[in-house]
Design a protein around this nucleic acid. Structure first.
Length: 627
DNA sequence: CTTAGGG
DNA sequence: CCCTAAG
């Protein structure tokens, strides 16, 4: 592919890593973008996607584990190529394809990488190395890119210019050494290198700042029992400190660890790029969120952040499937992300939202006819929902976090657990609807929100038979029937029946006048008892009204007819009616009564009662309401 | 699944 | 609304 000034191709690919067979998979979706000559990022064309498609496949296949964490896109400055690390891995051929226009640099590096890799470890995953300071870089399997980038932020490595380097080769190199703050993916250590921990090093007081990289590495090995080739002092120090203190709250430098505790820290150590981190973080955030065009040049660093950010998300998800390295990246990422950057909803989340709607339509409502109408309604809420979540999003889908406050990620969690009910899940799912509701209070919003909630409900029904307590104290329930069915098998396994019992309650929805009219209309047309029919034809847009609901409502209407109407006739209103509760207009009530009497007498003949004589007025109303 | 009815 | 029983 051409990597010229005109345009660089970029691959940042969108793919779903469904590594975990179960729901816990957390696909990271990268947006394919390309870098224009001016450095801006624009959405990739289909062609671009196609060109790199095979890489994606490769990635799925060859990425076993933690290497994923290292999937940091290489950012080649202005004329750049952005590739996911994995794309470069083990693929000198791929590299060539991509970089042939920059052969001089690329090939050299490539070769060097190869050799270095070979010496390091078998499944070496190579990547671009800084061309200027080879010795400052190390190649590790998988995570080298990260390591390199972190190197950049070390004192030892001259952190490079972001933009001023315009020649291709240099750019490439710079891309690697571009300063990266801690929030970006931490360098991972090749945990495969099993070396015997030498804890002797760790005896007594350890003043990490005084150690050389070599010593730090040694200390690292002593701490974690495996070797690292990371040369980023800061990272090493932090990591070691964390390891020794078993704490995540470790400054990047200036730590003195004594007896496995942080004794003191000097603040004079500098964190080169700390200052600009927040800003960059923000940019990255907005970038990711809006998929906006990125100011290329000045955006050099933001760009890399952008990708790091994405990667970070991916990494966090991937942790689960990386048993070995549980300690480092995981902890760190979580910590850092929390501190410095709010996590945006993953695309996966969005996709799942739409999935929900799909499930809703297909799963619960058997007739395709109804979805059309409702889907239109659902579409908007979907968007709204997303934004809401987005604005709130900050928490990680850990249960505790969610419990604490944000519920944004709750649905996310629930989805990841698709098919695996968990009892305590209920408690923190609680607030989800609340959040949503708060977000959508607009006129249309209410209706839409309802629809959406319904969607959630149905969704849950189809996956996890758990309930949700809405913010208003209402409870969303799974489809009863499903619950019943599931109880013996799936549900039983993971959760207690009692839980299901009390909590599995459908969110209460007051019947609107409109609904009532439709119901009446439906009864008039199809007859009482044809609830299914009525639901299908008259309530296609109200997915949350089941035939049972209709039946119940009708029953209540009948009762109302028998009580309320007479009362009114008496001129005595039994009790002041809550203003918020809109009394059913007598006209409708009357009609209900008539219909009821009519049909009950008529011997339940189903023939549509088209001749509701006096009700003409109401009849027309329903007619209009119906369509 | 759909209805009916009791809770 | 929920739960069940019965077509």
């Amino acid at each position: 592919m051409e990597v010229g000034d005109s345009h660089g191709a970029v691959v940042n690919k969108s793919e779903e890593n469904d590594f975990e067979k179960k729901g816990s998979s957390d696909p990271v979706v990268y947006q394919l973008v390309r870098v224009e000559g001016d450095g801006t990022l624009v959405p990739a064309t289909e062609d671009d996607v196609l060109q790199f498609e095979h890489f994606l496949h490769d990635e799925k296949v060859d990425l076993p584990s933690i290497e994923d964490v290292g999937h940091v896109e290489e950012f080649f400055s202005n004329d750049c190529i952005l590739l996911k690390k994995s794309d470069l891995e083990d693929g000198s051929s791929k590299l060539k394809t991509i970089e042939h226009t920059q052969k001089s640099g690329a090939d050299l590096e490539e070769n060097r990488l190869q050799s270095m890799d070979d010496s390091l470890s078998p499944p070496s995953k190579c990547s671009v190395v800084h061309g200027q300071q080879p010795d400052k870089f190390l190649i590790e399997q998988g995570d080298n890119s990260i390591a390199q980038q972190n190197n950049a932020s070390t004192e030892t490595t001259k952190s490079t210019v972001l933009n001023d380097s315009c020649n291709a080769e240099k750019d490439k190199a710079d891309a690697c050494s571009r300063p990266v703050d801690d929030t970006s993916t931490e360098p991972s250590v090749s945990g495969v290198n099993s070396s015997v921990p030498d804890f002797s090093i760790l005896q007594g007081e350890v003043r990490l700042d005084d150690l050389t990289i070599r010593e730090l590495q040694e200390a690292f090995r002593a701490t974690f029992g495996r070797q690292t080739t990371v040369k980023d002092k800061i990272w090493l120090k932090r990591r070691i400190t964390m390891g020794l203190t078993n704490s995540c709250d470790v400054p990047s430098s200036g730590c003195v660890v004594k007896d496995y505790k942080i004794v003191g820290r000097d603040s004079n150590k500098d964190m080169p790029n700390t200052g600009e981190i927040p800003k960059i973080g923000l940019q990255a955030t907005s970038l990711v969120r809006d998929q906006v065009i990125l100011p290329g040049n000045e955006g050099d660093s933001p760009s890399s952040y952008y990708y790091h950010s994405e990667d970070q998300q991916g990494s966090s998800k991937r942790f689960k499937r990386v048993p070995i390295h549980n300690d480092e990246p995981q902890v760190i990422l979580a910590e850092q992300s929390t501190n410095k950057r709010t996590r945006k909803p993953t695309k996966r989340y969005i996709e799942e939202l739409s999935d929900i709607e799909t499930h809703d339509s297909t799963g619960k409502l058997s007739s395709p006819a109804k979805r059309t109408a409702r889907d239109e309604v659902l579409l908007k809420p979907r968007v709204v929902h997303f934004h809401e979540v987005e604005s709130l999003g900050t928490t990680y889908p850990t249960r505790k976090d969610t419990l604490g406050g944000f519920s944004v990620h709750v649905p996310y969690v629930s989805r990841t657990r698709r098919g695996r009910p968990r009892k305590d899940f209920i408690s923190f799912v609680d607030k989800e609807p609340f959040v949503e509701r708060n977000g959508v209070q607009t006129a249309v919003g209410m209706m839409l929100a309802k629809e959406r909630e319904e969607g959630n409900r149905v969704r849950k029904a189809s996956e996890v038979p758990l309930t949700v307590n809405s913010g208003r104290g209402h409870i969303e329930a799974v489809d009863r029937k499903r619950v019943q069915n599931l109880q013996p098998n799936v549900y039983n396994a993971a959760s207690k029946p009692k839980i299901k019992r009390g909590l599995t309650r459908k969110h209460h929805r007051a019947w609107t006048l409109c609904e009532v009219m439709k119901l009446v209309d439906g009864v008039a047309r199809f007859g009482a008892g044809k609830w299914s029919e009525i639901r299908k034809l008259s309530f296609s847009s109200y997915s949350y009204r089941t035939s049972v609901d209709l039946k119940d409502k009708w029953r209540n209407l009948i009762r109302a007819t028998q009580t309320q109407l007479p009362a009114q006739k008496d001129g005595v209103c039994p009790r002041k009616i809550n203003p918020s509760i809109i009394p059913i207009p007598p006209s409708i009530l009357l009609r209900v009564k008539e219909l009821n009497e009519l049909q009950s007498q008529g011997g339940g003949f189903t023939a549509p009662v088209k001749f509701s004589g006096q009700n003409s007025k109401v009849v027309q109303e329903k007619g209009s309401g119906f369509l």
